[in-house]
Amino acid sequence: MINIFNHFGNQLLDGFGWTLLASFLALVFSLLFGILLALLEVVPAKFANQVGRTYVEIFRNIPLLIIVMFFYLIVPKYFVQLDGFSAGTIGLFLYTSAFIAEIIRSGIQAVSNGQMEGARSTGMTYQQALQHIILPQALKIVIPPLGNQFVSLIKDSSILAFVAGFDLMYQANAIASVTFDTINSYLVIGVLYLLITMPLSYYMQYLEKRLA
């Protein structure tokens, strides 16, 4: 393991950087988009509910690889050029958004209806009630499952290897193919994935405690 790190340090660092960047971008965008989708699902407007629902059902029920391949193979052919990294990150973000939307929707719905009625009865608009009363309470509920989802997202970023996204998994495959030491190549990146996922897990646990 140490050997592999000594010989392929630059390559691994490169992969670490791309994995980190893909995860970060996908996390930020899927959180924003996931919140938007969740709101579409809960607002009192049938058409918006349908749109949100449809998106979530489609994207969380298709394997991530197929979504990524769509952006890697089909989109460049007919629409716009996307390299492996972009295709992988976009696929990852759209896929994860569906799961985040589900988490946030159920978080919002877990806040009792009385909170909404209490707020509306003082003359607050629906948006004001959401912003000041419902979402802050939902946030507390969604932090643990959201943390799980973020960790999944980081691990799922290994999908980039399939579209030559230069991430950790891609580098491990390349290293394994020259050293023929598949096991240690994967173990090394296992440790590098832990370096990203564990601090994130701790941070989410800390947030959970602080908000409780």
Binding site: I74, P76, Q81, D83, A161, N173
Partner: peptide, 17 residues
């Protein structure tokens, strides 16, 4: 760019990757 297998590699070539 290295692809996982020939099927993917050929698809990637056809998609101008």
């Amino acid at each position: 760019v290295a692809m996982q297998d020939y099927g993917q590699a050929v698809s990637a070539l056809k998609s101008h990757q």
